[in-house]
Design a binder for these strands. Structure first.
Length: 857
RNA sequence: GCCCGAGUGGCGGAAUGGUAGACGCAGCGGAUUCAAAAUCCGCCGGUAGCGAUACCGUGCGAGUUCGAGUCUCGCCUCGGGCACCA
C-alpha cells in the first residue's frame, strides 16, 4: 500500500489497541494518575462535529499524558434523562427509555470509529437504574444531613396542557404546544441548600487557578455577594396590620434621593392588598402571567401600580414616599421590596419618568463639566463604586468620596442612628430540583398523612420508574399511575403516596465524574477508588456550562463530602477546566415562492468560481456567514460521512488545526480536504523511507536532529498549553523540513519516527502506521513521549531587529550570547542608525537581549 | 435589561509589551504530463514606485509606553449565560 487508505488502517489499529487493552484505566499506586474528562453528551441519537472536537481535545490530552507515564482515566457516559425523550414519546408514541437506549447504541457506534482512547468498560447512562439508585441514596443521605428541604416556588404553568413548562417551552408568554397564556403558579418543591455554601463557593474560586478567569468571574457574579443596608420604612397607615416595609439596598448612600418604594407582586403586602382591591388583584394577576425567567422580567416594560399607600422617610418623618407594586421586583432577592432612586439607577429612572415621580441627584461627577443631571433630562448617573464623586445630598461623611466610601459611611450612620443594619446578602438562590416529569430520577420519598414526608428505605432502592406509562394525556404519567404512586408509608405502613416529582437532570450531571471512578460500586462511590482517581485533572466542555453545571457540581462535591461519599480534598472536583468553542458552518439559503427562506445542506450545494449553486436545480444560493450548526438551518456536517470519506484522523486533525480550541472553528470542505492531503503526504514520506538504514551522521543529519528537537519542544508546549492549533502548525513546518532535508535516509526515518510520536495524540491511526512502517518498537500508543534535548535547542546567533523611534529600520546578526554593551556598539555602527543620528547622540538606547533594539533620536 | 467573552490579509488563524500576518486554505506563476488528476517548486496585507524603498495597516475613538494586536478608559458589532434546554 503506497497510498494512505484510512478505511484499511483505522479499524486495524483500533483492534490492536483493544487487544493490548491500551485504554483500560488501571488503579496503579506505583504510577501518578491523570483523570481527563469531557462533559458527557446528551444522547440525541447522532454525533455532531462539535462532539468530535470536544472528545478529540480530551483524547489528545489523554494520549499525551499516557505517553508521559501517567495512569490515565478517560471515561465516557450518557446524560440520558431529560425532556427530549419525553417529547419524542409524545410526538411518536414510543417510550422514552426505548428512544434513549436506541440513541445511545447509535451514538456509541458513531463514536467508536473515531479511535478515542476511552475506557469503555466504565460506560454508564444516568437513566440506568444502577446509577440512579445511587443518586437516590445520595438524596436520602443529603436529606438527613439537612441539605435538602421543601418550600413553595413558582413555575410556568400551562393551564390547557395542565403541565409545568420549562422556560424554553414558553414562547412569547404562551405554551409551545397549547398556545395558551402561561401562568406563574406556586408549587411545593424540593430544594438543595446551595445558598448555605454561597460564601464558601465564592471564596474557593480563588483556588481554581487552572480555570479560565472568565468562568470564575461569571460564577462570582452569579453568587453575587453584596453588602448593603437593611431597614424599614414605616407605613403611614397600618393597612391590614402591616406597619412597615422592610427593604434592602446596596446603595444606602442614595437614600436622600429616594422617590418611591417598590414591592414585588408576590410580596405579602401586595397579596394582602389584592384581597380587597380588584384593581390590584388584576395588576398582580397580570404580573404573574409573565414568565419566571430573570431575562423576561428585566426586558419587560417596567410597570407599576400605585397602591395609594405611603411610607415615611427614615430621616424625615414628614417626607412621604408612595408605595408601588412593580413588575420588575423579585420576591426571591433581598426582601422583595426596594426604594427607588431614579437619579442613580436606569431602571428606577425609567419607572419614575413613566409615573411622574421626582428625580433627585444625591451625587454628581467631581468634574461636573458637561454633565446633564438626570433631573434635567440626562441619563441615570451610575458611576463605578470605586469612582470619587461629589455628594450633593449626602448624609454621612465627606462631600467628595468614592461610592464605596459613601456606602460604608451611610451604613455606619444608619446603624448608629438605629435606622437599619448593614447586612451581607447573596444573589445565589437555593437550587430547586423538583421536576413534574416522568423521564428523570424519581425522588425517593413517600408522603404519609401521619408521618409527613418519609424517605424510602435504603434497602428498597432504587425506586424504579414504572415502564407501563403513556404520554397520550397531558400531565405527568407518574401522577396518574395508581400502583406506582399509591404505596404504604415506609415508617408506619399506612396507605401513602409516592412523591411524583423527579429530579432536575443537573443532579445527574453533578456527580457522574465521581461515579466514573467506580461505576459499578454498590454505594455511590468507592472511597479507595475515588481517593486514587479524583480529582478530575482536566475537565473539558462548553462555555454554556460555565455557571450552572459547574456550580452545582462544586456544591455536590461538598455535599458528598459531608455525607461521607468523597474525601475532603475533593470539594473542588475539577482541578483544571477548559472551555472549548463551537463548530460553525456557513448557511446556504434560497427563497420559496412566498419569499420565505429555505435552507440547504452543504452536500446539496456546489461552489463554483461565479458563486454557489444548488446541485440539482442550479439555482443561485445565498451564503450566510458561519453560525453554530443547527438542524433548522441545515448548516450541519455529519461526522459519520466525514469519517467514511476521509477517515477519523482527518476529522480529528482538521478540528484541532484550524482555530484555537477555546474559539469557534468553522468547518469547511476545503479545510478537511487539505487535512486529508497533508496526512497523505506524511504517509508517503514514511513509505519512501521504509527500508532506510541507520543515520550516517553528517552535517545535514545533525541539522535535522536539531529541527527534530525543536519540533518536540514546540509541539509539547502547544499540547501542554491547550494550543493544539499551534502544535499542528509546527508539525506542518516539521514535515516541510523533513521533505526538504538533504539528510541521510536513516536520519530522515529517525525524524519521521519522532513525527509519528508527535502526531499520535491527534492522528493516532496514521501515527501507528508510520511507526510500524519505520520499524518502531511496539505501539506508538504505548511508547514514551520524546524529550527535547536542551543542548540542541540553543541557536548560535540571532537576528535582532533595529528600531529607530519605534519603527523597524534594519537588522543585526549577533551571537546569541552577545552582551548588551557589545550589541550597543554594533548598533551604533549600523548604517541606518548612523544616518538617523546624523552625527548626534541617541537620546535613549534600549537593548532587549535576544529580542530587539530601539534607538530613540 | 444584567453578567461574561470575541473582533488581525480574500478566508481560518500566529505573535512572554519587542520584526504584525507563523502555519494552513483560496489565488497567481512555473515544473512534470500528449492532456488532466495527483505531486513538486516559487509568489502572495494595502497604496505609490521599474526598483531600492516610503507611507498606511490588528472593529472605532482616546490614553499609558522608547515601543501597543497585546495594557487602561469610552464606544460599535457579533456570540455565550440569565436559575425548568442540556
Amino acid at each position: 500500500m503506497s497510498r494512505l487508505i484510512p478505511s484499511e488502517i483505522e479499524p486495524k489499529w483500533q483492534a490492536a489497541w483493544d487487544d493490548a487493552e491500551c485504554f483500560r484505566a488501571v488503579h496503579d499506586p506505583e504510577r501518578p494518575k491523570y483523570y481527563v474528562l469531557e462533559m458527557f453528551p446528551y444522547p440525541s441519537g447522532r454525533i455532531h462535529i462539535g462532539h468530535v472536537r470536544n472528545y478529540t481535545m480530551g483524547d489528545v490530552i489523554a494520549r499525551y499524558k499516557s505517553s508521559c507515564g501517567f495512569s490515565v482515566l478517560h471515561p465516557m457516559g450518557w446524560d440520558a434523562f431529560g425532556m427530549p425523550a419525553e417529547n419524542a414519546a409524545m410526538a411518536s408514541g414510543g417510550h422514552p427509555a426505548t428512544w434513549t437506549y436506541d440513541n445511545i447504541r447509535e451514538m456509541r457506534a458513531q463514536m467508536k470509529p473515531l479511535g478515542l482512547s476511552i475506557d469503555w468498560t466504565r460506560e454508564f447512562a444516568t437513566c440506568d437504574p444502577e446509577y440512579y439508585a445511587q443518586q437516590q441514596r445520595l438524596f436520602i443521605d443529603m436529606l438527613e444531613e439537612g441539605l435538602i428541604y421543601r418550600k413553595a416556588a413558582v413555575v410556568n404553568w400551562d393551564p390547557v396542557d395542565m403541565t409545568v413548562l420549562a422556560n424554553e417551552q414558553v414562547e412569547n408568554g404562551r405554551g409551545w404546544r397549547s398556545g395558551a397564556l402561561v401562568e406563574r403558579r406556586e408549587l411545593t418543591q424540593w430544594f438543595f441548600k446551595i445558598s448555605d455554601f454561597a460564601e464558601e463557593l465564592l471564596e474557593a474560586l480563588d483556588g481554581l487557578e487552572k480555570w479560565p478567569e472568565k468562568v470564575r468571574l461569571m460564577q462570582a457574579n452569579w453568587i453575587g455577594k453584596s453588602r448593603g443596608l437593611q431597614f424599614a420604612f414605616s407605613l403611614v397607615d397600618d393597612p391590614d396590620g402591616f406597619d412597615r416595609v422592610e427593604v434592602y439596598t446596596t446603595r444606602p448612600d442614595t437614600l436622600m434621593g429616594a422617590s418611591f418604594v417598590g414591592i414585588s407582586p408576590d410580596h405579602p403586602l401586595a397579596k394582602a392588598l389584592e384581597k380587597d382591591n380588584a384593581e390590584i388583584a388584576a395588576f398582580n394577576a397580570e404580573c404573574r402571567r409573565m414568565g419566571t425567567s430573570e431575562e423576561e422580567l428585566e426586558t419587560a416594560e417596567k410597570r407599576g401600580f400605585d397602591t395609594g399607600l405611603t411610607v415615611r422617610h427614615p430621616f424625615d418623618t414628614a417626607w412621604e414616599l408612595p408605595v408601588y407594586i412593580a413588575n420588575f421586583i423579585l420576591m426571591d432577592y433581598g426582601t422583595g421590596a426596594i426604594f427607588g432612586c431614579p437619579a442613580h439607577d436606569a431602571r428606577d429612572l425609567e419607572f419614575a419618568r413613566k409615573y411622574d415621580l421626582p428625580v433627585v441627584s444625591t451625587f454628581e461627577p467631581l468634574d461636573a463639566e458637561g454633565f446633564v443631571a438626570p433631573d434635567d433630562g440626562g441619563d441615570a448617573y451610575v458611576p463605578q463604586k470605586s469612582e470619587k464623586v461629589s455628594y450633593v445630598k449626602g448624609f454621612a461623611g465627606d462631600e467628595a468620596q468614592t461610592g464605596s466610601q459613601g456606602i460604608d459611611a451611610a451604613i455606619a450612620f444608619c446603624e448608629d442612628s438605629g435606622v437599619g443594619r448593614g447586612v451581607t446578602k447573596f444573589r445565589l438562590r437555593d437550587w430547586g430540583l423538583s421536576r413534574q416529569r416522568y423521564w428523570g430520577c424519581p425522588i425517593p420519598v413517600v408522603h404519609c398523612s401521619t408521618c409527613g414526608t418519609v424517605p424510602e428505605k435504603r434497602e428498597n432502592l432504587p425506586v424504579r420508574l414504572p415502564d407501563d406509562v403513556s404520554f397520550d394525556q397531558p400531565g405527568n404519567p407518574l401522577d396518574r399511575h395508581p400502583t406506582w404512586r399509591d404505596v404504604p408509608c415506609p415508617k408506619c405502613g399506612a396507605p401513602a403516596k409516592r412523591e411524583t416529582d423527579t429530579m432536575d437532570t443537573f443532579v445527574d450531571s453533578s456527580w457522574y465524574f465521581a461515579r466514573f471512578t467506580a461505576p459499578h460500586a454498590e454505594t455511590p462511590t468507592n472511597m479507595a477508588e475515588a481517593g486514587y482517581w479524583m480529582n478530575v485533572d482536566q475537565y473539558i466542555g462548553g462555555i454554556e456550562h460555565a455557571i450552572l453545571h459547574l456550580l452545582y457540581s462544586r456544591f455536590f462535591a461538598r455535599a458528598m463530602h459531608l455525607t461521607g461519599h468523597l474525601p475532603e480534598r475533593c470539594k473542588e472536583p475539577f482541578e483544571a477546566l477548559f472551555t472549548q468553542g463551537m463548530v460553525t458552518h456557513e448557511i446556504y439559503q434560497t427563497r420559496d415562492a412566498q419569499d420565505r427562506p429555505v435552507y440547504h445542506l452543504p452536500e446539496d450545494v456546489e461552489r463554483r468560481d461565479d458563486g454557489v449553486f444548488l446541485r440539482d436545480t442550479g439555482a443561485a444560493v445565498e451564503v450566510i456567514p458561519s453560525a453554530k450548526m443547527s438542524k433548522s438551518k441545515k448548516n450541519v456536517v455529519d461526522p459519520v460521512a466525514i469519517v467514511e470519506s476521509y477517515g477519523a484522523d482527518t476529522a480529528r486533525w482538521f478540528v484541532m488545526s484550524d482555530s484555537p480550541p477555546e474559539r469557534d472553528v468553522e468547518w469547511t470542505a476545503a479545510g478537511a480536504e487539505a487535512a486529508f492531503k497533508h496526512l497523505g503526504r506524511v504517509y508517503r514520506i514514511a513509505f519512501e523511507l521504509k527500508d532506510a538504514g541507520a543515520p550516517e551522521g553528517g552535517a545535514e543529519d545533525a541539522a535535522l536532529e536539531r529541527a527534530t528537537h525543536r519540533a518536540i519542544a514546540d509541539v509539547t508546549e502547544g499540547i501542554e498549553g491547550f494550543a493544539f492549533n499551534t502544535s499542528i502548525a509546527k508539525l506542518y513546518g516539521f514535515t516541510n523540513t523533513i521533505a526538504k532535508s538533504k539528510a541521510s535516509a536513516g536520519a530522515r526515518a529517525q525524524a519521521m519516527r519522532t513525527m509519528a510520536q508527535l502526531m499520535s495524540p491527534m492522528t493516532p491511526h496514521l501515527a501507528e502506521e508510520v511507526w510500524s512502517l519505520l520499524a518502531g518498537e511496539g505501539l506508538v500508543a504505548q511508547a514514551a513521549w520524546p524529550k527535547a534535548d536542551p543542548a540542541l535547542l540553543v541557536e548560535d546567533s540571532v537576528t535582532l531587529p533595529i528600531q529607530i523611534n519605534g519603527k523597524r529600520r534594519g537588522e543585526l546578526e549577533v551571537a546569541a550570547d552577545a552582551d548588551k554593551a557589545a550589541v550597543e556598539t554594533l548598533v551604533l555602527e549600523h548604517p541606518a542608525v548612523v544616518k538617523a543620528l546624523d552625527g548626534g547622540q541617541p537620546k535613549k538606547l534600549i537593548v532587549v537581549p535576544g529580542r530587539i533594539v530601539n534607538v530613540v533620536v
